[in-house]
Simulated scan of single mutants.
Amino acid sequence: MALSLAVSPCPNDTFVFHALVHGLIPGTPEVNLTFADVDVTNTAAERGEFDLVKVSYAALPWLLDDYELLPTGGALGRGCGPLVLTREPGVDLTGKTVAVPGDRTTAYLLFRLWSADRAPGRIEVVPFHQIMPGVAEGRFDAGLVIHEARFTYQRHGLHALADLGEWWESDTGLPIPLGAILARKGVVDPAEATEWIRNSVSMAWANPDASREFVLANAQEMEPEVVQQHIDLYVNEFTLELGRDGLAAADALLQRAAAAGLTPAVKPFL
């Protein structure tokens, strides 16, 4: 029976899952792939729509009854956090309108922890690709962006008011837990799925040219050099294995969020 998999079309995900999706790993089942932005998968997973799914770490408190966190395939790292962008430098966000890419994204959870004493006036959830143009045109006072936007925001004439990754790392000393891979309980054996995905990551690194056409075809008009920057930043040691630092980062985020009343409490991973 084929397994359903949902990931984003971003280069890190297409690079990581190319071998698995294309049947290049012996002994793996057929995989039915769905591309969806993480704000979509966060809620789709809550409905149990996928067997394997990429979600935000911030969404885990609503999903861990039905899904198990896998220790491979996700997006964590250093120097890769969300940015708060504005048209002018040094904007005071108090009472302002901020565009965010999803209300259960890690980016938004980090923003809520960071902005606790800044009290933005209004939050608008909008598709990611509309955030930077919206800020540049003055429809939003600020925008919260992720992924490749950290390489391209200057093209829109925008300024980085805050790097939430730098803030998080300086405060915790831990990597930023962005995207997690979950396996649906009772449907997918987590040990088997971990091995499939780990092999897919290893194959991607061993032969990066094999996935190039697939990655570029789904890269949403990104230039090849931006695609490579994206992969280099988000596919790293934590993609292959979360390890203690990765699990500690997830614990720190979710325990802080629960203590602040922003998410339900979850049992620590460590």
Rank of each mutant, 00 (worst) to 15 (best):
W167C: 08
L109F: 04
D51T: 09
A249S: 15
I146M: 14
A248T: 02
L158F: 14
F111M: 10
H230M: 05
D251M: 02
E221Q: 13
L24C: 13
V98F: 10
L178V: 11
V100C: 02
V187L: 12
I231S: 01
R184G: 06
P177C: 04
W168N: 05
P89K: 08
V91M: 13
E137G: 14
P127G: 13
T14S: 08
D51S: 14
T172L: 12
D92K: 14
A249K: 06
L85Q: 03
S200F: 01
G157R: 00
F17A: 04
A149W: 05
G73C: 00
G79H: 01
L109G: 04
V187M: 06
W205G: 04
Q154Y: 06
V53A: 11
K185A: 11
L216F: 11
G173L: 08
D163M: 04
A149S: 09
V266F: 00
S211G: 09
G134M: 07
A204T: 09
D251I: 12
L233A: 12
L70K: 05
T41H: 08
L33D: 02
P175D: 09
E241F: 03
G261H: 11
G134K: 02
G121T: 10
F140R: 00
H159P: 10
N12G: 05
V7I: 15
T43K: 13
F17H: 04
P61A: 08
G121E: 09
D141H: 14
L144H: 02
P89D: 10
R78A: 15
A252E: 14
V38E: 02
G102V: 03
R244W: 06
A204V: 09
A19V: 00
S4H: 11
G157F: 05
R112I: 12
L254W: 01
N12I: 00
A210E: 08
A36E: 06
W62R: 10
G23T: 10
V227A: 01
G102Q: 08
F111G: 01
F15L: 08
V215W: 02
P101M: 02
A193F: 06
T72I: 01
N42D: 14
G90F: 07
E46T: 01
